[in-house]
Simulated assay, not measured.
Amino acid sequence: MTNTPPRPSGAPDKPVLDGLEEKWSRRWDESGVFVFSYTHTDAVTRCQRMRGKEVSWWRDGSVHRAAWPDACALREYAGDAAVLATAAEAIAAVRKAKSQARLSMRAEAAGVLVTAERATLDRFAAASDDVRAAGRIAAVQLRDAQGALKVEVTL
């Protein structure tokens, strides 16, 4: 014998789902209500952000709704490839420091000390505003020294 509570009077033995979608779709259309659930996408996105990943998705303003850039139009702005390589190396060092500290890539970096030969520092200076923006770096210091580029990050 089971301890099943008594069924309220008038309740069916088995719920009938036939016609529910049409019924509610019609009501929502008439009232101008749009129903869409972001629950799953939102949950996955939040989970990935908590793990320190940069996550975006197709909501208004998202990069995923923007048209792909035309490479031909961008080539006229290409400039010096060495500047790009120096900037990329610096940004990679900042991202690595944040990753090792288990911080979001959106976390602010208090500062960066860039040590390199004068020619490399000049290339870095040409892209320093972009590097600061990409790495969310508050302050950048440059130090002239012999040897390869070295980037010290203070989080």
Rank of each mutant, 00 (worst) to 15 (best):
A97Q: 04
S9M: 07
A87L: 04
V151K: 04
V33K: 08
R106E: 12
G79V: 07
E22R: 14
A133L: 09
E152D: 14
Q100N: 10
S56E: 14
V151L: 05
A145D: 14
V33I: 15
T39V: 11
D29S: 12
M50C: 03
S104V: 04
D144F: 04
P5D: 06
I137E: 05
R49T: 11
D144K: 06
C47G: 09
H40I: 15
E21Q: 13
G52R: 02
A92W: 02
V114G: 08
A97K: 07
A126E: 14
W57L: 03
E22M: 01
Q48A: 15
K150C: 08
D144H: 02
E108W: 11
E152I: 03
I91N: 01
M105G: 10
W58R: 10
A73I: 00
R46C: 00
P6A: 15
A85P: 01
A73S: 11
P8T: 05
V55K: 07
S56L: 09
L142G: 00
T2S: 11
E108V: 11
K23C: 05
D60Y: 03
Q100S: 09
V44E: 09
H64V: 06
L121I: 08
V63N: 05
G19Y: 10
S25W: 01
R59L: 06
A73P: 00
Q141W: 02
D18A: 15
A110D: 14
Q141V: 09
A125Q: 08
R7G: 01
F36G: 14
A97V: 02
E54S: 06
D130C: 02
L20A: 10
P12C: 05
R51Y: 08
A92R: 15
T2G: 06
A66P: 00
L84Y: 02
V55W: 05
D80M: 06
K14Q: 12
H64N: 08
R7L: 13
G19L: 06
S37W: 08
Q100A: 13
D80G: 08
G52P: 01
G135I: 07
L74F: 03
A109M: 01
R7M: 07
Q146F: 01
R123G: 01
V131L: 09
